[in-house]
């Protein structure tokens, strides 16, 4: 079957049957796109040789819509897992890739997604080494779900963990917050809201490697504030360390358009998801150096220190508002609900 013929068709249950149609889909789309020695063995799994401490992370991606401004579900599935491995202080190398496709997805969209995965994997320096494709009946899924698992070698200078967070540590964000979540929100059906907000979905592994090369153990904790947003990560730190975390509203980087969209939709940017952002908890001595290093990269251009870990024993995040008041940033309970008025 030629690819042009494939492109005009749609995914159906046969493509997940394990028979000839599955084989064709794999040969024409997957193997052709990724073309590497691990996949080319066409085996059920890959055999790796790793002589190092390794980090593994897995994540599933169910975003709706599957194509959005700035990225699509495929790129997101690479960036999300690559970043999770990087947040362990590791250098991501390998990725598994599993699809659950709802029958009826256009082959064209599927191929677009697969190609985006390939490009994102190349940009992140990772190889797709094993995978799976299942097809479910119409109505049993939502177009396409993707699971990826990432494997990486831990950086020799890395020592990242929650118990390394100390009183006085500085909290640095690598860029403006709430970009991804608002890009998705403003494109959801039913909102009738036009904006140019673009998802920040990107790989952060090289930026993290630069940090670890430069500062090693002085980087105490790394987290990417995806679902639950910046507040999710900070409240977790406050609760796990029982130290009050202080942040300053005036220092939190926030693009004008994103701030405006949050105002209109009644959402708090601290709770909105990010996909190309990380929070580094670092030794206060290196605060300025870390910010300077991050700002050299396009992905860290707007990096800023937004607060610190205080000595007060209390599992709370306190935000100092623009007008000098204080409030508690509490963890999100369910989905953030827009207000009526």
């Amino acid at each position: 079957m030629s690819e042009s013929k494939l492109e005009r068709s749609t995914i159906n249950l046969g493509h997940g049957s394990g028979g000839t149609m599955t084989r064709e889909l794999l040969d024409e789309v997957i193997f052709k796109t990724f073309n590497n020695p691990y996949l080319n063995t066409k085996h059920d799994g890959a055999i790796l040789e790793i002589n190092s401490k390794i980090a593994v992370s897995t994540d599933s991606f169910v975003v709706n819509p599957i194509f959005f401004k700035g990225a699509n579900i495929g790129e997101l599935a690479v960036h999300g897992t690559v970043n999770d491995v990087a947040m362990c202080g590791a250098i991501p190398q390998y990725l598994s890739l599993a699809f659950i496709v709802e029958e009826g997805l256009s082959m064209d969209d599927f191929i677009k997604i697969v190609r985006s995965i390939k490009l994102a994997a190349n940009d992140s320096g990772v190889q797709v080494i094993t995978g799976d494709t299942k097809v479910v009946e119409r109505g049993k899924g939502d177009k396409i779900f993707i699971n990826t698992t990432g494997i990486g070698k831990v950086h020799p200078k890395a020592n990242i963990s929650m118990d390394r967070v100390k009183v006085g540590d500085k909290i640095i964000v690598s860029g403006p917050i709430a970009q991804h979540g608002m890009a998705i929100m403003t494109q959801r059906e039913g909102l009738e809201f036009e904006s140019d907000i673009i998802s920040d979905s990107t790989n952060l592994n090289y930026l993290v490697k630069d940090l670890l090369d430069g500062f090693g153990e002085q980087i105490h904790l790394l987290r990417d504030p995806t679902r639950g947003g910046v507040s999710g990560v900070l409240t977790e730190i406050a609760m796990d360390t029982n130290k009050e975390v202080h942040i300053y509203e005036k220092d939190i980087p926030l693009e004008k358009q994103v701030a405006a969209a949050c105002e209109i939709l009644g959402l708090d940017p601290l709770y909105v998801a990010n996909e190309g952002l990380f929070i580094a908890i670092v030794d206060p001595e290196i605060e300025q150096h870390v910010v300077t290093l991050l700002r050299k990269s396009d992905k860290g251009r707007q990096a800023r220190c937004i607060g610190e870990v205080s000595s007060k024993e209390s599992p709370k995040v306190v935000l100092h508002s623009l007008i000098g008041g204080k409030r508690i940033v509490s963890p999100l309970i369910g989905e953030q609900l827009p207000r009526i008025c």
């Binding site: 007008i323 000098g324 008041g325 204080k326 409030r327 207000r339 008025c341």
Partner: peptide
């Protein structure tokens, strides 16, 4: 009177000021 005002007062930490 309005809940939006309550939200604004507390979100900005005005009550304590």
């Amino acid at each position: 009177v309005c809940g939006g005002q309550t939200h604004g007062l507390i979100k900005n930490g005005i009550i304590d000021l």
